[in-house]
Amino acid sequence: MKEILLVLFIFSIVLTAMVNRLRTYVKLLAFQGLVLFALSFIELDEITPANLAWISIETLLFKSVAVPWFLFHLINRNKITREAEPFLPHFASLIITVLIIAASYALTTLINDLNADRISFVTALSTLFFGLYFICSRRKILSHLIGYIIIENAVFILTLSIGNEMPLLVNLGVLLDIFASVLLMGFFAGKIGDVFKTDDISSITSLRD
């Protein structure tokens, strides 16, 4: 079951590399949130109302509802629909994504005494590198924000695969921070749309030496 979920997650990554509508990106993010909920549900040692509520807030409410809703709101306000002219064609993007996944797999097999779950680890690593690649290869500021959220999802899977329970207070701080940074970045991304009348990162280069 867990393997199926992880493969589904990888599938959503590959799809993200291929499509070019911002709305589709956001839908894929919401889908990733659902997969993450299922994954953390399987990983639960025992089902108590407290930890069920905790993972639901962390994944369902935050990753599948709040963030996608907020991103849709930004897309509507800035009236953008598609990711016009990425730096690379989609086919190249797809090839690079597959290479990233293969490289992550190869890297993980090199490590003999991996104490973490191997497939989760590969998924997390390839998502992390894909997120960085996604940020570098897209021009729209909102795509950059989406790339950041993909990286956050990678970190979430990495946390699951390592399985080191952190104290609740610490966990809460981590979640709040990520939520606040997404909100603040979204706020400024919206502002950039208003002020520069563009959402293209290549036109924001007035600061230099």
Binding site: I135, I141, I151, S181, M185, A189, I192, F196
Partner: peptide, 26 residues
């Protein structure tokens, strides 16, 4: 506009860097 550009770059680069710290901690 200049402040907006500066703040966007600052928050974005810092958010990515801080995520890298978290990966290191993991």
């Amino acid at each position: 506009a200049l402040a907006l550009e500066a703040v966007w770059k600052y928050i974005f680069v810092c958010a990515i860097s801080v995520t890298l710290i978290f990966v290191g901690i993991l």
